[in-house]
């Protein structure tokens, strides 16, 4: 039992990252119908920004302010800065290609991602960085189940973020505009909602979320390297589409599902076969639920 509970906590932590990152994917996908292949690298860049801000704050304010204030400040400032990366990617890579085939926009995204990776490598060199701990780590043991305060924090903050985003999308005017846009992006601009505002906003929110995920990631897996976003980005892409188009709830659930599958497959089967079995399960899920979890029907005809 404790073995199962231990892995449940492991899976919740790991799934949280997939969930938060794939939500950013899913929003762009829902509103603009394009794959944002730069998202994994936006996550990477967000983590590096978080690293810079955190290092600065710890150096300057660690004696003056309590830990949680520093933590909150780092999160907010990083989110703000990182959201501009999202805007940048939209304006440079996606806006000129709005009338183009969707795949072409995906390729520009992919290429912007490669530029980010190489840029960091040139700028900071081959050295890997270690994310400074924003709070002291404590290990707790309850009945043989081990967890740290960081694990709990990751899970809780991810849930808060997702709920806040859900509120934003469901309750505010901006959220309504986004939902409308994802329902029919040809008709909505005619109603006076500018796609040139909604699209960057979507990218910015996605990038902001990714950067928070990056800070949490830096606490849980404190090693930064320029290629850290590649694999996690492609996996979040799987989760985003698996969740169904334009469904935040679906993307979050698919993210957790992916985390659970990866952790529990390694628990039950020999871990050598993890990827083989995990992705076969995804293939099976899609065979029987070809529309994903919460996907809606396409209202407008797909472009190429």
């Amino acid at each position: 039992m404790d073995y199962f509970l231990q892995n449940l906590i492991n899976a919740l932590q790991w799934g949280s990252f997939y969930a938060v990152i794939s939500i950013g994917y899913s929003m762009v996908y829902g509103v603009l119908m394009v794959f944002n292949f730069a998202h994994g690298d936006i996550f990477m860049l967000g983590t590096y920004i978080g690293f810079a801000i955190a290092t600065l704050f710890i150096a300057v304010f660690s004696a003056l302010l309590p830990t949680w204030v520093i933590f909150a400040a780092v999160v907010i400032i990083t989110m703000f800065l990182a959201s501009w990366i999202g805007v940048f990617v939209e304006v440079v890579g996606y806006r000129p290609l709005r009338q183009a085939p969707r795949a072409s926009a995906a390729i520009t995204g992919l290429m912007i991602g490669i530029i980010f990776e190489t840029g960091i490598l040139i700028f900071l060199g081959a050295k890997r960085l270690s994310f400074p701990p924003l709070m002291e780590s404590h290990v707790y043991n309850i009945g043989g189940v081990y967890f740290t305060n960081i694990k709990v924090m990751v899970i809780v903050i991810s849930l808060i973020l997702m709920l806040a985003l859900h509120g934003l999308i469901q309750k505010t005017k901006w959220g309504m505009a986004m939902r409308a846009m994802s329902f029919d992006f040809l008709a909505v601009p005619l109603m006076g909602v500018s796609i040139n505002i909604i699209a960057p906003l979507t990218f910015a929110i996605g990038a902001g979320l990714a950067s928070v995920a990056g800070i949490l990631y830096g606490q849980a897996y404190p090693i930064l390297d320029p290629y850290m976003g590649v694999l996690i980005g492609w996996k979040a892409f799987v989760a985003a589409i698996l969740g169904g188009r334009g469904s935040i709830k679906g993307a979050a659930m698919a993210g957790y599902l992916l985390g659970f599958i990866e952790i529990f497959v390694a628990m039950v089967f020999p871990s050598t076969f993890r990827d083989l079995i995990a992705y076969s399960i995804i293939l099976l899920i899609l065979t029987y639920r070809p529309r994903g979890f919460f996907g809606m029907e396409y209202s407008t005809k797909l472009r190429l």
Partner: peptide
């Protein structure tokens, strides 16, 4: 005798197994 794949960063499941 546990394994993971290049670029993985989460080894919690394997380590839980090892510990057990």
């Amino acid at each position: 005798y546990e394994s993971f794949t290049t670029k993985d960063t989460d080894f919690s499941s394997q380590l839980t197994k090892i510990k057990r």
